[in-house]
Amino acid sequence: MTGTGNKIVSYITLALFIILAPLLFPDYRTSLAALWLLIIVALTWDMTGGQMGYNSLGNIFFYGTGMYVAAVVGISLAYDVADYTNAAGGGIYKFTDAQYFTGMLVGSLAAGLFCAVSALILGWLLFGLRGPYFAIGTLGVAIAAGELVSNWDWVGGGQGIALPVYPYDLDQGKLFFYYLFAGLGVAVFAFCAWLYNTRFGAAINAIRDDEEKAEAMGIHTLRYKLIAWSMAAFFVGVAGAFSAFQLIHFEPLETAYQTINLGIFMVVCVLLGGKGTLWGPVIGAIMFHVFKEVTWTYFLGWQWVALGALIVVTVVYFQDGLMGWLKTRRPEWFGIRVEQKAAIAEAAE
């Protein structure tokens, strides 16, 4: 009873902190929004990577595609897209408040749905690939998409797209985007917490642990893999859409399909925190964000070397992440029983 009571108290405290954080630390609003983005992409990466054992290196594809779909849909509600991108910028074309916000809302939803559907199609093609082939294949999709989009003039080619600026006060805009990302992050977290407790969650875990056995048990492996990936893609697509409006201007290779930045960050976050756990990606994202902010501030010029070193060290020496490490150290915290005596005593009661 006190257990649930404690839980409720801690969740309320956490919620208060999430709501108050940008007001308490106004200088860090953008950085905190970036942290939420990391949490979102890490949680969604873990849906397939950690829980299902399919390590995608191409989830960034959905981020970039979400950006483009949201921008194109948002613009097309008010203007002709080709004219807009030809003029290379939002400076000339004015958006009313209503146009801005409906564009964002409809664009984000469209982005999420488009990404979910493209995950179904890509997954149908790629889910026959196992292990490293899947990772390479998805990485290939992300790289190819970036290259193709940067050659596609209708969406601005290599120049990218410049979206309208947030119509009100800039500081308020930062707050607005913080809450957008925080809301999405909390939603993704709650969604994962629910999903992993369903039969579906157990089935994707079975696919991770032994896909051949899962197939032999008659589990609809392909169907579940597609559903899991398209759920992840939906959230990443929406996050990409928010980013598009937050960043105002984005271009294909460095911002949208940023394969070696965010695309690899999300994997590192999950590995740092612990694959296949609910809290692991969140904790990992926080650890990574702090590491990144510190190196970007104090080791400017060497930050990427430090990042590469972090990846190597994490992968080689600390692959189970914080949660995995705790799991082997304190299995009882996670309700795992290995000793025979404990279980027998339990059964005798």
């Binding site: 990427w304 590469g308 190597v312 992968v315 080689v316």
Partner: peptide, 30 residues
């Protein structure tokens, strides 16, 4: 690095070498 990832699952070697690649690129850049 490599000797420690050979026996591990294959994604490990992929990611570890990816990290090595980033480090090399950036060192050469510097």
């Amino acid at each position: 690095v490599i000797s420690r990832v050979i026996e591990r699952d294959l994604f490990t070697s992929l990611l570890a070498t990816f990290g090595i690649g980033i480090m090399f690129e950036q060192l050469m850049n510097l």
